[in-house]
Each structure stands twice: as C-alpha cells, then as structure tokens.
Design a protein around this nucleic acid. Structure first.
Length: 273
DNA sequence: AGTGTATCCTGCAGGC
DNA sequence: TGCCTGCAGGATACAC
C-alpha cells in the first residue's frame, strides 16, 4: 500500500501527538512482524519516552530517549493512534498494541509484510545508509539522477522501485511519473536521453508532492494515523486504469506484467522506442 | 554486477 | 452460492 506519500501522511499525523509520551505497555499479537526477538523488543521499549517521529524512505522512524523504533508498513500495514487512553482502537488484524501514557497506538497489518524493529542509533545509521537519496533532499539533483539512471540496463520502472537508487518510490508513483514524461516503463535506463531523465527527476518530485498534498492514495486499505483514507486516487492518470482512455490522447491505457508487477501506460504517449 | 523469479501472507474481484 | 484463479501499495533471498 504505502509509498512515500502515504508514509509521510502517517508521520504527519503522529509527529505532533507522540513526542513526550512514554511507552507503558507492549502487547505482541504477531511476533513474526518483529525484527527483534519479542523479549528484546519489549525490553527495549518499555519505559522509553518518544522524542520525535520522522520518515526515511518508506520507514516511520520513532526516536526514543534511547534507541529507535522503525516501522515499515509493507503492503497493508497501518499505524493507528488515539489520544483517548480508555479507547481501544478497532482494527481487523492487530499485530502489536502499545499502551502510552497519553493514548493508544496499534500496528495493524492484514498480510503481515510489514515490520517493527528496534535499532540503536548506530545500527539504524548503518541500515539507513544503504537507502538511496530522498527525493525532496536538496542534494538530490537532476544531474546526479540522470547520470545514475542512464547507467542502468534495467527497465526504468524497476530502477525506480529499487530503494538503493532512490528512496520512497513505489509502483504507483513510478508509473505516474513515467506517464507524465512519456517514458515507457520497460525502456532501459541507458536509453533515456538527458532531458528525459532530468524531466523524470522533476516529475517524480512533483507527483510525490501532489500526492502528499492529497494525503496519499487509498486503493484498498491504506489509512493514515487517524484511520482516514487518502484522496489522491481520483488523480491517478494511468495506474489501475487499464482499458480507460489516456487523459492526454484518448488511447486505451494498457497493462503489462514484468518483474511480477503490473505496469500501466499509454502506448501512444509512452512508445517503447 | 545486475536482473528476473519466487516467496512471505491474506483478502477480494471476477469467471464459471 | 461457491469454488478457483489471479492479483494487490513491498522487500529480499536466490538462481542465472
């Protein structure tokens, strides 16, 4: 479910609520979600005070007075918060419940592809250093992006989904950005001309920003920290629109499968060669 | 080195 | 109604 805009929306819903609160209880209903042993996970969190909530790629980073809790939502994860201490959050597939001294926090995940992991500052830094540049980082330049993607023999959609190359882009926004620039998802990175690559850099940033402005995309079960749906679904130009007319030229939107993922594109606006 | 495929897991839509 | 197949926002361990 969640790509950068959805994770950012969850973080924005939590970053003014959680800091200052302390963790009083941890109830693990699905141990397979944890990146640590249940004992270590619980021991590391009980009594800790939350200092901040931020985002790195598709990770939610909860900084504690000692260590960090890092949550990845996988495909169907939700991190839901209520400040009503007595209120049990309703959720269909609860994985971990946190009791805070000022609210309740639940991690819910139908498919359980997500994870919750406690890191030390050092171990997170090491893990995090393997992730590519943040799209909104001012050091993420069009020139660097173009140089990097034009070295790749992979299909550009595959390259964009590789978190080591660029942080936070998933299937929806990769395909939306490629449509906006008129690049076929299966074109090899090395076939991109410099202006195309630079325009792709620009459109990635634009589409992510627009999606954040609309609180992300809800296809099935994405919800923000308050349980609200995203509003960007109606703005998608090609994703999930197989057989519908291209918003630019009217040609029927096509779907192809490669790397075990669907790719939606307009065959006229995004020629393969 | 860099790609593609299979895999983890559950739910749901569509075909018959 | 019910069974079956395919597909879903992600990441990673493998086999080429």
């Amino acid at each position: 479910m969640p790509e950068l805009p959805e994770v950012e929306t969850v973080v924005r819903g939590l970053k003014d609520e959680l800091p200052g609160l302390s963790i009083r209880g941890v109830e693990i209903l699905r141990p397979d979600l944890l990146g640590n042993s249940p004992a270590e996970f619980t021991r590391s969190l009980i009594g800790r005070q939350i200092q901040s909530v931020s985002r790195r790629a598709k990770h939610i980073v909860v900084k504690l007075d000692d260590g960090l809790l890092v949550v990845h939502l996988g495909m169907t994860g939700q991190l839901l918060f209520t400040s009503e201490t007595s209120h049990q959050i309703e959720s269909t597939h609860p994985g971990v419940r946190f009791t805070l001294d000022g609210g309740n926090l639940v991690y819910d995940d139908t498919r359980r592809f997500g994870s919750l992991t406690v890191y030390t500052e050092g171990s997170w830094l090491e893990k995090e250093s393997g992730i590519g540049p943040e799209p909104f980082d001012e050091n993420f330049t069009a020139a660097d992006f173009a140089t990097s993607i034009r070295k790749s023999r992979s299909p550009v959609r595959s390259w964009l989904l590789d978190q080591r190359k660029i942080a936070g882009v998933g299937n929806i926004y990769a395909l939306e950005a490629l449509f906006r620039v008129g690049i076929h998802p299966q074109r090899r990175g090395q076939t991109l001309r410099v202006p195309e690559a630079q325009q792709l850099h620009s459109e990635i940033i634009t589409v992510l920003r627009e999606a954040i402005d609309r609180k992300g995309t809800t296809l099935r079960n994405y919800r923000d920290a308050s349980g609200e749906e995203g509003e960007y679904g109606g703005s998608l130009l090609v994703y999930g629109r197989e057989g519908l007319p291209c918003p630019r030229c009217g040609e029927s939107v096509k779907r192809v499968m490669f790397s075990a993922r669907s790719a939606f594109f307009c065959p006229r606006c995004q020629p393969r060669n």
